[in-house]
């Protein structure tokens, strides 16, 4: 959450070059493709190159998918530093697992990556929690004009708390389908469940959230 506590990124020359190449279509990767200005290679093509040890392909694929994976991990973990570590670990699994990827068109790489991220997040949440700086609430803004903002923040905090109190699988289903805007079918693949099981989790989660937020309903009149 608080990015000010994040260490400054230490990017070595080679890594910076890899990332720079991954950021531009005219990078070495695209240039090495016949035709030069062709669209960026797809995930399957990049995975084939990663399987052969191509670091630039890895950097390109990682830069392409890391933002969404980080967002998902942070939503599940509620902590930027942990989310970054989880995604880094998931990216390493991409490197080691690329040779096993079968580009048959049935599975999407992003779905696979998100499944890895979700599993790593679940593992991490089961570890004893460390009460770091992330848990300390920010001091309230004392200016009177911020009253509405504060009320909104307070409501958001209650909603976050209600989400955090959901059983794990319900919370994962809500995160994937509501916040990540995944379809129930995608979420089912990521969670290794059937679509009807995901729909059941969503229904129970919404019921529980409505019950937990009933006080907010009465105060704000929103629900």
């Amino acid at each position: 959450m608080d990015e000010s506590v994040q260490p400054e990124p230490r990017i070595g020359a080679a890594s910076a070059a890899d990332i720079a190449a991954s950021r531009t279509r005219s990078g070495a990767l695209s240039a090495s493709i016949p035709g030069g200005s062709l669209p960026e290679p797809g995930d399957d093509a990049l995975l084939a190159r990663i399987a052969q040890g191509d670091r630039q392909a890895f950097a390109l694929l990682a830069a392409r998918h890391a933002p969404k994976a980080m967002k998902l991990a942070q939503r599940i973990l509620g902590n930027a530093a942990d989310a970054d570590e989880v995604v880094q670990e998931a990216l390493l699994r991409v490197w080691t697992g690329a040779k096993n990827w079968i580009p048959d068109g049935r599975a999407r790489f992003s779905t696979w990556l998100h499944r890895v991220v979700v599993n790593l997040c679940v593992d991490r949440r089961r570890r004893p929690a460390f009460a770091g700086l992330e848990g300390i609430p920010e001091p309230p803004d004392p200016t009177p004009s911020a009253v509405n903002v504060m009320a909104r923040q307070q409501t958001a905090k209650l909603v976050s708390q209600a989400l955090a109190e959901l059983p794990e699988r319900q919370r994962l289903a809500v995160t994937l389908c509501y916040y990540e805007e995944r379809s129930a079918a995608d979420a089912a693949q990521i969670l290794s469940l059937s679509v009807s099981a995901v729909e059941s989790l969503l229904a129970r989660a919404r019921r529980a959230l409505r019950a937990r937020l009933s006080g907010v309903v009465q105060d704000t009149g929103e629900v």
């Binding site: 990124p9 890594s15 909603v159 959230l209 937020l213």
Partner: peptide, 29 residues
């Protein structure tokens, strides 16, 4: 209820953070 759920702030993922994660993965490689 959807409106309440949407009050939860979306995590901010800066380009610097993404670079840091990717660079960290490359360093571990």
């Amino acid at each position: 209820l959807d409106a309440l759920l949407s009050l939860v702030a979306e995590p901010e993922i800066s380009a610097t953070r993404v670079d840091s994660v990717v660079a960290g993965a490359l360093a571990r490689l």
